[in-house]
């Protein structure tokens, strides 16, 4: 296993914060067809420094919207978003994101894409090439440095996007279904990689996923959201040390509980169109 490439401590000590995210009374509406429509309703959540939080919920319940607000791409909301006490008003290199689509620049090679993320960091120029190489190794893409994104498979591109987000060492990393495009086998592998990276790096991570098993395997807590409007329905503590064993009975029990929660929600709202789809069911 590749050890995590470079020490984080020097950067952490230079910064005041350690990655504590506070979401309080967050509300978000979009105007659809001239009508304001509540998408996120009164979200309250505190993510502890270094914590891994998973978010699951039906399609369209506002998970991506929530991440876009936290990362600072969308600044129209009411309520408060704070990272280490600082109100979030725009994007910042302290907050990274892996989008649902990989969003590598098609006109650059894998290596160039990752190096570009360092453009506005204070990383010394002389060290950049090495850091980029380390991160490519970290996501197991050695040998593809000079490949263009269209020459990578979906899963490889997604791993490259993860490397691009990690290379800036953000205090808070947001992941929007980062493994959604992967086949079951690669997925399990990248999940373990992600856990290893997170354990080595100990930055705060918030990951959206449709896969309850994945949410439980990685998350210290799993946030279950319900749709129309998007609310936090339940927060499940996963009281198991990392690294975890996928076969742990606790994980299986919690999985059944969360699945029951998700499906009962759909029934109660009488909205069959919002039935959660769970790739993990096919994947097993």
């Amino acid at each position: 296993m590749t050890p995590y490439p470079h020490a984080r401590e020097d950067r952490l000590s230079a910064k005041t914060g350690r990655g504590e995210l506070i979401v309080s009374d967050l509300n978000k509406s979009f105007t659809i067809n001239g009508q304001p429509r509540r998408i996120l309703d009164n979200i309250n959540l505190t993510v502890r420094p270094g914590e891994f939080v998973s978010i699951v919920g039906a399609s369209g319940c506002g998970k991506s919207t929530l991440l876009r607000l936290i990362v600072g791409l969308d600044t129209e909301y009411s309520g408060e978003l704070r990272l280490d006490g600082e109100r979030i008003a725009t994007t910042s290199l302290d907050r990274g994101i892996v989008f649902q689509d990989h969003r590598l620049f098609p006109w650059m090679t894998l290596e160039q894409n990752i190096e570009l993320a360092l453009l506005n960091t204070d990383t010394p120029r002389a060290r950049r090439a090495q850091i980029v190489a380390d991160h490519i190794a970290l996501v197991n893409l050695k040998g593809f440095e000079k490949a263009y994104p269209h020459q990578l498979s979906g899963g490889m591109a997604q791993r490259a996007a993860i490397a691009r987000a990690l290379v800036t060492e953000p205090r808070l990393l947001l992941l929007d279904e980062p493994l959604g495009a992967l086949d079951a086998l690669t997925r399990v592998h990248v999940q373990s990689e992600l856990q290893r990276i997170w354990m080595a790096q100990r930055s705060t991570m918030v990951m959206v996923t449709h896969d309850v098993e994945e949410a439980l395997y990685l998350g210290d807590r799993v946030i279950v959201m319900s749709p129309n409007p998007g609310r936090i329905r339940r927060i499940v503590e996963v009281d198991l040390p990392h690294p975890r064993d996928r076969r742990s009975p606790l994980l299986h029990r919690l999985k059944d509980e969360i699945l029951a929660e998700l499906t009962s929600g759909a029934d109660a709202d009488g909205d069959a169109g919002n039935l959660v789809h769970l790739p993990s069911r096919e994947a097993r």
Binding site: V71, G72, L73, T91, S92, L93, G96, I97, F99, D101, R103, F105, L116, A117, L119, N120, T168
Partner: peptide, 10 residues
């Protein structure tokens, strides 16, 4: 979406 990446990377 590419412009958003630019915004993320400041």
């Amino acid at each position: 979406r590419y412009l958003e990446v630019g915004s993320i990377l400041r």
